[in-house]
């Protein structure tokens, strides 16, 4: 999915948080967003992800404003993901259940994504009892499983050990290559951005710089 942002303005109590006259995010690429704390990265993802509707300007997804179809084809993994108080299996299966996928296929898909992210050992644990890093892995699995056209990730590896970071990066890239899904990833790790991103956007006080 291609993204086109025009005249985006976002304020909190009269303070401008985002001011982006024009920004294009290319389809099928991995775009990194980086910038200091408080520069507006999460706010930007909230707006693109349709969670925050209070802004000025327009965001077009393949030329269209946000609608139901677009919403079901994109997803957003929060920095501190919320997992359901059910087993990891049910957490990951949820998006497919919403899409009325049959049980056998759900089982296969969950098994596959667990193996890819190397988290099969978590399958029977309760979602709300996982550590921060484990939650991030499961939340990524829950996002990847339905192969969204647009994947928004807010510091997806912030609580994750170096070994697992490799795995997650590999799977994000694989998702991008195999499905041509667009990825927008907020990261503080410039090396990570260089490793996996095709483009990098630098946000500074709500403006795009370089």
């Amino acid at each position: 999915m291609e993204l086109y942002i025009e005249n985006l303005h976002k304020k909190y109590d009269d303070k401008t948080i985002l001011d982006i006259p024009r920004l294009k995010i290319q389809e099928g690429k991995i775009t990194g967003i980086t910038g200091l704390n408080g520069s507006g990265k999460s706010t930007l993802l909230n707006i693109i992800g349709g969670i925050d509707k209070e802004f000025e300007g327009s965001i077009r997804y393949n030329g269209k404003l946000l609608n139901k179809e677009i919403a079901t084809n994109m997803t957003y993994v929060f920095q501190k993901p919320y997992l359901f108080r059910r087993k990891v299996y049910d957490n990951i299966a949820y998006p497919l259940k919403l899409r009325k996928v049959n049980k056998d296929r759900i089982e296969k898909a969950v098994q596959e994504i667990l193996e890819r992210l190397e988290i099969t050992d978590l399958v029977n644990k309760k979602g709300h009892k996982l550590s921060g890093g484990e939650s991030q892995k499961v939340a990524l699995a829950r996002a990847l499983i339905f192969e969204p056209k647009l994947l928004l990730l807010d510091e997806p590896t912030s609580n994750i050990d170096p070994e697992s970071i490799k795995v997650l990066e590999r799977e994000i890239v694989r998702f991008n290559k195999e499905t041509n899904g667009t990825v927008l990833i907020v990261t503080h790790n410039l090396n990570q951005a260089k490793r996996i991103c095709d483009d990098i956007i630098y946000l500074s006080f709500g403006r795009v710089g370089n």
């Binding site: 992800g49 349709g50 969670i51 139901k68 919403a71 079901t72 084809n73 994109m74 997803t75 957003y76 993994v77 929060f78 993901p81 919320y82 949820y94 998006p95 919403l98 899409r99 829950r142 996002a143 339905f146």
Partner: peptide, 12 residues
């Protein structure tokens, strides 16, 4: 929060 998660995963 749960409402947002449902939305991001494609729920109505």
């Amino acid at each position: 929060i749960i409402e947002k998660v449902a939305f991001t995963l494609g729920g109505n």
